[in-house]
Design a protein around this nucleic acid. Structure first.
Lengths: 216, 216
DNA sequence: CTTGCACCATACGCTGGCGTATTGATAGAC
DNA sequence: GTCTATCAATACGCCAGCGTATGGTGCAAG
């Protein structure tokens, strides 16, 4: 993609966001430690001289990258899931989405691995809690009382995360094709109980189907 | 092998295993990159001169640490869980154990974060697959057919891992006290369907049925 | 044209960690 | 009491990455 280019003749210089994007790529590929100024500069075809014009130091770059990441994560949820009126279908969508993008999963795990850093932890916490809160809302919409909804949300979220980890650490253990769909159906039907104590009106004849496998 | 003198007045020199243990501590505290020769030596009250007598290089230390880790993980499972005859109780024990030791959880996550490294990945895979296989056996003992048992094992293991991650990344989101027990009960009762254990009569009870068999 | 600004290159010093080489210390064997 | 193997200290060279200082270049406005 090309640069914003607000004015007529624009230069093709690097922007802060270009660096942030490159940093996220580096994180997904090699963890937070892979965010090194000089290697990144090389990859972008420039030298450190460029970097230190845009950023005060390495930490500022990491911060910018994490801000970009947080924005993307938030947008993803809102854009792709929010419009769905049915809470059951919303959770299913979340599940599918969580298992769809290999890269975003790697990113999350890599960033979360740097939780100890005071720079990283606020971002991880915000993103995680936002997701869990969103899940909790879904369960509440399913008719669960707040405390139970929180338990289910945590449970489901843990399963999300664990699947990411399995996919990264032992991809052979993750099935593909129809067997994966079977696996998905098992988790979904288990994690979204449709028998809520109170007035349970409707049954959902949802069919879970998706293209399995690892994408980029 | 082992130390030269088993007699009373033993020297207080460092052994390979001392270094490996210290390395594991470092990993749990700061990730694999925290396994640095000189800092570790300082922490052990010696200099690099000692280290390079015991190990060829840093990678050898990491390998030794991971071997120790793998051994410990294996022993843990065998010692604490194996003697339990009831498969249901075995899974429960696994679950409780997985949530018990904060350190071992951190260790696992930290090591798994280095999956990309060719040194690390074999260890992570062996440990993960061994655990999942063990879980699968438990589910088979519960009466599940192999494929379904594998699905449930993966599911349960993912939840294990995810809980570890939540505990590390957003500890506030993890309840304590009675509320945690409630949470635990929810997960256990959900992840271990007991439909089989009730009747001992059936040889291959297809608990699988849930409600998935029909919709397509 | 020249001035100012935005962006980048180059060159430098600094630090921390890896690995090696050499020497030093100590305990047990003889 | 010497000798030797085992373990550790010291000193060195090396490299990668951070951060700084300073100079260079293109472009747009005046």
């Amino acid at each position: 993609m090309s640069r914003p280019m607000a004015s007529p003749a624009s230069r093709q210089n690097l922007s802060v966001e270009d660096w942030a994007r490159a940093a996220l790529d580096a994180i997904a590929a090699g963890g937070l430690d892979a965010v090194a100024v000089e290697p990144l500069a090389r990859r972008l075809g420039v030298t450190k001289g460029s970097f230190y014009w845009h950023f005060a130091n390495r930490e500022a770059l990491i911060r910018a990258a994490l801000e970009l990441w947080e924005r993307q994560e938030t947008d993803d949820i809102l854009d792709r899931v929010e419009p769905e009126p049915d809470p059951y279908a919303r959770i299913v969508k979340l599940f599918k989405q969580a298992n769809a993008s290999y890269r975003s999963g790697r990113l999350y795990l890599a960033i979360a691995a740097g939780e100890d850093s005071p720079v990283v932890s606020p971002f991880v916490r915000r993103v995680s809690e936002r997701r869990m809160n969103y899940l909790q809302e879904c369960y509440r919409d399913l008719g669960f009382e707040a405390s139970q909804a929180r338990h289910w949300a945590r449970f489901a979220y843990a399963t999300f995360m664990g699947n990411l980890q399995i996919r990264r650490d032992t991809p052979e253990a993750m099935p593909t094709g129809p067997e994966f769909n079977q696996y998905l159906r098992l988790m979904i039907s288990t994690l979204i109980p449709r028998t809520v104590a109170a007035g349970d009106s409707e049954q959902h004849p949802h069919v879970v189907s998706m293209h399995a496998g690892s994408s980029q």
